[in-house]
Structure formats: C-alpha cells, structure tokens
C-alpha cells in the first residue's frame, strides 16, 4: 500500500472547531431545574460520553473525507515512447583506485535524477554481473541502493563485462519503449569469459539497444577497441574519461543526446479513499438514528 496523504489537510480543523464549539457555544435548548439531577447525570454519564465520542468521531471522519485521502503512485509515462536506460557500473577492485567508484556513483546518481521521465535499470559487475535494479521508474529506491553499493559487492578480482552487457540486454526483453539505451562504465577488460562478446553483442542488437561505453582511467587500463566496437555496432558512442570533469561532461552529453522530448505524457496514479471515511460516517449516523429511534419508543 502506498503512503496515504491528504490533499487538503486544512479540513482537519473541523474537529477542533467542533470541540471548541461544544465548549464555548453550546446548543440552545430549553432548560429546567431538575431536583434528581445527580441521579440522572449518574445514569446518563456513560451514554453521554459514548454519544459525544461518536459525534466527535463523525466530525473527524467527515473532516477526513473532505481532506481527501489520496495515495499517489509514481509518475508513469506512456511506455511506448519513453526511454529505457540500463546503467552498467564496474565494481571491480580497480575501481577503488583514486576513489573512482564513488566519483562515478555520484555522477550516475546525478544522471539518474536528471532522467525524470525514463525507466532506469542498474547492473553491477565485477567477478560476476548481477542486476541490482531492473528497469523501473522508482528512482528513489534506485538511488538508495546505489548509495549502498561499494566495490566488492560482486567480487573484486575480475571484470565480467560481457556478462553484464548480456544480462542488461535481457532486461529489455519485455520492453516496449522505442529508445533503449545502455551506458557501460568500466575501467577494465573482460577477463572472465563467461559470455562471449559476440553473444552479448547479438543480444544487444536483437533488442535494439544503443550502448554508450565509457572507459575511465588511463588509456590502456581499458580495452578501447572493444568498447569502441561495442558502441559502433549498437549505434552508440565511445567516450574515454581520465578526469572527473570529463566523466561529468560525458554523462551530460549522453543526457543531451538522449533527450526525451515529451513531458506532457505524465500521469500521476491517484487513488482516492474519500469513500471510506464517508461510508463509515454514514454508517455511524444511521446507527445513531436507529439508536435514538429505538430508545425513544421504549
């Protein structure tokens, strides 16, 4: 269940006004001096308390209905037209050097926040590759997860680059989006051989995924030829980054290259719960009426 919030919480002033009114502006009814007051008060004490509580509860329920309880789901786009982007991040041991991993993480998070209307996925790879977050609009949890990821979560000896590509490509199996993008960030060379490059490439092509490859570190740390090849065959682009500023610039560039141009197709899934407090209020009212009717007849 999503969080329930109120659209017009100001209405909750009603029960407060109700309480104040009961205290300071009582109903004008005829009053009589009644000698047996002590006894009738004693007898009525419990009932008066219950009835007053019910009336108060009613005012709360009505206020709750007016305040419009609502649960908002995430923004959902027209899936056929949105972007779907898989982020592949190298978490091998070498990424720890020069704090590369954390810098990359910050930049990726920054990028994530920019892609407001896209579906994003996250794949981490080192000794093996795994899908940390499948394609989703839920950026919050993605950022949360990304913050916790550190070097070594997938081992730290090797770099299973192709496996990561292959796995990420499979993320798009069910995809209906027109634009499918994968951004590969690495500082090493594939050395696990779990998935051959060819297979990975074929899968990428099969699902029409554009791959941007980013090699970070000095030239020679990563296999520029392979990365260029991957980019080329999938209509993507290769970037080499040897500084933080450059890496940032690359992500900005990718952001600009893959600009989603529709913001109108934005939906907020709303679910109203107005009827529940209202229904409860009506039931209580009916019970009160029945109660007073029965008691009145006796």
């Amino acid at each position: 269940m999503a969080n329930i919030e109120f659209e017009y919480p100001l209405f909750f002033i009603i029960p407060i006004i109700y309480l104040v009114c009961i205290k300071f502006c009582p109903k004008r009814v005829e009053s009589i001096y009644f000698p047996g007051f002590r006894f009738i008060k004693k007898v009525a004490k419990r009932r008066v308390f219950i009835e007053n509580s019910i009336w108060f509860l009613l005012s709360i329920l009505i206020a709750a209905a007016l305040a419009t309880p609502i649960s908002k789901s995430d923004v959902v786009l027209d899936e056929d037209r949105g972007y779907e982007i898989a982020m592949l991040i190298d978490a091998s041991g070498s990424m720890r050097q020069y704090n590369k991993f954390n810098i990359a993480k910050d930049i990726v998070i920054d990028f994530l926040n920019k892609r407001k209307h896209d579906k994003l996925g996250l794949t981490i790879f080192a000794d093996f590759a795994y899908i940390a977050v499948p394609l989703t609009y839920d950026k919050k949890s993605m950022v949360r997860l990304l913050k916790r990821v550190d070097v070594g979560v997938a081992g730290r000896q090797k770099t299973s680059l192709y496996e990561a590509l292959f796995l990420s490509a499979n993320l798009f199996k069910e995809s209906k989006a027109k634009e499918r993008v994968a951004i590969l960030l690495t500082d090493g060379i594939d050395n696990t051989n779990t998935v051959p490059l060819k297979v990975a490439l074929n899968t990428l092509k099969k699902y029409k995924i554009k791959v941007y490859t980013i090699g970070i570190g000095r030239r020679g740390d990563y296999d520029q030829k392979v990365l260029e090849k991957i980019a080329k065959e999938t209509n993507g682009e290769f970037f080499g980054a040897d500084s933080v500023a450059k890496l940032k610039a690359i992500y900005n560039e990718i952001d600009n290259l893959e600009k989603s141009d529709f913001k109108a197709k934005k939906f907020v899934k709303r679910h109203y719960f107005v009827e529940y407090p209202l229904l409860l209020a009506v039931v209580l009212l009916i019970l009160l009426f029945i109660n007073s009717y029965i008691r009145g007849r006796r």
Binding site: V29, S31, I32, Y33, F34, P35, F37, R38, G296
Partner: peptide, 10 residues
C-alpha cells in the same frame, strides 16, 4: 423526551 438542558437546582 428529547434534548433537554437539566440544571441542578442545588
């Protein structure tokens, strides 16, 4: 019957 204000004369 009905809503009535009662006052304790004491």
């Amino acid at each position: 019957n009905g809503e009535l204000g009662l006052i304790d004369p004491a």
